[in-house]
Computed example of a mutant assay.
Amino acid sequence: MEKFQEIYQRAAQRKGSEAMLEQLLYAPLSNKQLKCLPDDAWLEEFTRKVFQSGFYWSVINSKWTGFREVFWDFNVEKLLMMPPDMLEQKATDERIIRNFKKVQTIPENAYMIHDVAQQHGSFSQFVADWPSDDIIGLWAYFKKHGARLGGNTGPYTLRALGKDTFLLSRDVEAYLRGHKIIDGGLQTKKSLNSAQHFFNELQQQSGLSLQVLSLLVSYSVGDNRVGIQTTEA
């Protein structure tokens, strides 16, 4: 396995200098900051990521004001009281992307958030307290208890709202496969455990967040040299 310094120096070389690389790195929120997020924010971001799956993200984002209007700013308590016939009506509203199966995930994920909040004080508290050295365990929780939150949907929601996580982006996956850290299916238990172990090792060597390490790994490979815009890693 490569050492942290090898990955860092290659990423810096590809980006032109250490100074240029550092400008591209950004840290996650602190646990204290995460705990201050309203639980409605999680429902909104889960929904955004569910709808972005299979669509151009720009299309979903252009409709987002309409989503917020139709679903009461993703107020969890209001949505829990919504009768099924009202959900069906909202699913046909022209202000949103009219995909009933994806619309159904909104109350389902609202129930998950509510249930977790009942046990842990708030959903944000639950997420903030989850240890980063087992972040794949939180991914698995979302997949098991939420609706359409498997694959990259859960991890990308965590990244969007500031929870420390690595991402299995195309560049990160290419690195892990190229260095024989994973093989076979990307979302298998074996691959996920291997990826978590790899990032935990890097974290022990560097003291950096999983988020920064994930970015560094992605910048060290692939088509993201100086002057080329990258996808989120």
Rank of each mutant, 00 (worst) to 15 (best):
Q33E: 15
Q33L: 06
L34R: 02
L34Q: 08
L34V: 05
K35P: 02
K35L: 08
K35I: 08
C36F: 05
C36T: 05
L37Y: 08
L37M: 08
L37K: 04
L37W: 01
P38N: 07
P38Q: 12
P38S: 12
P38L: 12
D39L: 04
D39A: 04
D39M: 03
D39Q: 08
D40H: 13
D40C: 15
D40P: 02
D40N: 15
A41S: 13
A41Q: 08
W42T: 00
W42P: 01
W42C: 03
L43R: 06
L43V: 07
L43Y: 08
E44K: 15
E44A: 15
E45F: 15
E45W: 14
E45Q: 14
F46N: 01
F46G: 00
F46A: 02
F46C: 00
T47V: 01
T47Q: 04
R48C: 00
K49D: 00
K49N: 10
K49A: 05
V50A: 11
V50I: 15
V50M: 12
V50N: 09
V50P: 02
F51W: 03
F51A: 03
F51R: 02
Q52K: 05
Q52S: 07
Q52V: 03
Q52I: 01
Q52C: 07
S53I: 00
S53N: 09
S53Q: 08
S53G: 08
G54L: 07
G54T: 10
G54Y: 02
G54C: 04
G54E: 05
F55T: 03
F55E: 01
Y56H: 12
Y56R: 13
W57P: 03
W57E: 11
S58Q: 11
S58L: 05
S58H: 06
V59K: 06
V59S: 08
V59F: 12
V59G: 02
I60D: 01
N61M: 07
N61S: 06
N61D: 07
N61Q: 07
N61E: 05
S62W: 03
S62Y: 08
S62N: 14
S62H: 14
S62V: 10
S62Q: 15
K63R: 15
K63F: 12
K63D: 06
W64S: 11
W64A: 12
W64L: 10
W64H: 12
W64F: 15
T65H: 14
T65F: 14
T65R: 12
T65M: 09
G66V: 04
G66M: 04
F67H: 09
F67S: 05
F67G: 07
F67R: 06
F67V: 11
R68A: 12
R68P: 04
R68H: 06
R68D: 02
R68G: 04
E69S: 10
E69H: 09
V70N: 05
V70D: 07
V70I: 14
F71V: 06
F71C: 12
F71G: 10
F71S: 11
W72Q: 13
W72A: 11
W72V: 09
F74P: 02
F74R: 02
N75Y: 07
N75F: 11
N75Q: 10
N75D: 13
V76W: 09
V76M: 12
V76C: 11
V76Y: 13
V76A: 11
V76T: 06
E77H: 08
K78S: 07
K78Q: 09
K78I: 03
L79G: 12
L79S: 09
L79M: 13
L80R: 14
L80Q: 10
L80V: 03
M81L: 15
M81A: 15
